[in-house]
């Protein structure tokens, strides 16, 4: 997986906040203003090598794990929405307008994704970017 560089601006507990350096390829990107590094935003990363403020570090984002979690969450939300809609429309337990019933059940069911997302796997420390090494200490 690709390593990226950034400068640590704050250290807090086992985490470090860093400003990523933009790769050369980003120079012509139309969306660069939205990017974290370009908007002055900070990235929270696991600080395993003990980087200090001002250090230039190399970090890695575990995209595949993030994608898997995002896929699980989106798929669960969609399935719940679909299940609620079909149940409300065809079975219509409330005995009201089928479309209204479908809508209410679809939205109600999709809200179930909230408790689901509270599962530990979606907020695990392992999902954060990880600082791999300190490239240059602040002098």
């Amino acid at each position: 997986m690709k390593l990226e560089q950034g400068v640590v601006v704050k250290v807090e507990g086992g985490f470090a906040y860093l400003v990523p350096s933009l790769p050369q390829g980003c120079e012509h990107c139309a969306l660069k203003e939205l990017c974290i590094g370009n908007s002055g935003g900070k990235l929270k990363a696991l600080n395993l090598p003990g980087a200090r403020e001002g250090d230039l570090v190399e970090f890695q984002i575990n995209i595949s794990r993030l994608n898997l979690n995002l896929m699980l969450l989106s798929a669960a939300g969609l399935l719940l929405l679909l299940a609620g809609g079909l149940l409300g429309f065809y079975i219509n337990p409330l005995g009201i307008n089928p479309s209204l019933s479908g809508g209410l059940f679809a939205i109600g069911f999709s809200l179930l994704v909230f408790p689901l997302a509270r599962l530990r796997r979606f907020s695990s420390r392992e999902l954060y970017p990880e600082i791999k090494r300190v490239v240059r200490r602040k002098t």
Binding site: L73, F122, S123, L127
Partner: peptide, 20 residues
């Protein structure tokens, strides 16, 4: 808001996509 609350790492990763 929901993703920010329940899963900060996912929110951080999705940061650029949501405004889009």
């Amino acid at each position: 808001m929901f993703i920010k609350k329940v899963s900060p790492p996912l929110y951080q990763a999705l940061g650029i996509y949501l405004p889009l």
